[in-house]
């Protein structure tokens, strides 16, 4: 019910030209999504993170590894011992926490986003190819892969890191390698599910090319599934890269990656707790936003499916 009402409001201007306009499935989802204020808050936060990831060097007041030896372990500015220059305080080496967090967004949010994007493109491409070319509709294979993919991504990433060695780049490669088959699997399942449907058969009978069938006919109908799995993968990638950083197998000191910062901050957790609290909080807010957005997308998709 809700989306249609909204839809009317939004399209009033274009009524001049169109009697009735059917919003695309994705548009419908977006309209549903907009109706959820929490989701929008999460969405804006992610937008903010994206902005920071790109422009951190210009936004941050100091460099990530700039050390102020006269200002070691300062609490945040609002406490009595704080210094206004360092809004969120400094760590044990006198590095500005705010600047480190801002620079860290690049590593903790930007890098996973990039990894997931790349693995999604590769995985979806391969998944579509697999669905069309092999065409095995065996549910055994699906079940088998379901079981195989139940092995947690962090465990697999750990093993890959053990093979190629620790480091942020290697952690990123590991996460990418784990994500690609998952996207492949999801895409293949989604396409295979769509293939026998009437509308696809009808298009086929119309004699459209395979490329057109996939890109214009099937794709708009599976994009919602892909978007949801994208957010899930993003949340997992952020958490895994931070976890690898925390375990000392991902980003290495002095990189301001939040997981690695958290691991280092443990040394001072009992006397300057903000150094520990802040990267964790940033990570928490990021994950929460991704999860809220993902959740809202899912329910918007569900509503869209129910209303159409």
């Amino acid at each position: 019910m809700l989306p249609k009402r909204l839809n009317l409001k939004r399209t009033r201007a274009s009524e001049l030209y169109y009697e009735e306009r059917n919003p695309s499935p994705l548009e419908l989802v977006w309209l549903n999504f907009r109706a959820n204020p929490l989701a929008m808050a999460g969405f804006y936060f992610l937008g903010f993170l994206g902005f920071i990831s790109l422009f951190a060097p210009w936004v941050a007041p100091f460099g990530a590894n700039e050390q102020f030896t006269e200002a070691l372990s300062l609490p945040p500015a609002w406490s009595d011992d704080g210094d206004l220059r360092f809004l969120l305080g400094t760590d044990m080496l006198g590095r500005d926490m705010l600047s480190r967090l801002l620079h860290g967004a690049q590593l903790t949010f930007g890098v996973p986003l990039l990894v997931v994007l790349i693995s999604a493109v590769i995985g979806i491409g391969l998944g579509v190819a697999a669905a069309v070319s092999v065409g095995v509709k065996s549910s055994s294979l699906k079940h088998f892969l379901d079981v195989l993919f139940s092995i947690p991504s962090l465990l697999l990433a750990l093993i890959i890191v053990a093979i190629i060695g620790p480091g942020l780049l290697n952690a990123v490669i590991a996460i990418g390698l784990v994500m690609i088959p998952q996207f492949l699997h999801i895409t293949r399942n989604a396409v295979v599910d769509e293939l026998p449907k009437d509308y696809v058969v009808a298009s086929k009978l119309n004699g459209v090319s395979t490329l057109y069938l996939l890109s214009a006919v099937i794709f708009p109908n599976i994009v919602s599934v892909l978007v949801v799995s994208f957010t899930l993968a993003l949340s997992a990638a952020i958490l895994d890269i931070a976890a690898l950083g925390f375990l000392g197998l991902g980003a290495q000191a002095p990189a301001p990656e939040w997981g690695a910062m958290l691991a280092q901050s443990l040394e001072v957790s009992y006397n300057s707790p903000w150094v520990m609290a802040l990267p964790g909080l940033a990570l928490f807010l990021t994950l929460m936003s991704v999860n809220i957005v993902g959740e809202a997308l899912r329910s918007a998709l569900q509503q869209q499916r129910e209303t159409t």
């Binding site: 949340s235 958490l239 931070a242 976890a243 925390f246 997981g259 958290l262 443990l266 957790s269 009992y270 707790p273 520990m276 609290a277 964790g280 990570l283 928490f284 994950l287 929460m288 991704v290 999860n291 809220i292 959740e295």
Partner: peptide, 22 residues
């Protein structure tokens, strides 16, 4: 549950050590 789902477990563990043990 939403916050519990998003909280990184290594942070939660460390926070709980600080609060409940320390």
């Amino acid at each position: 549950s939403l916050s519990g789902y998003s909280i990184p477990v290594f942070w939660l563990a460390q926070l709980s050590i600080l609060v409940f043990a320390l």
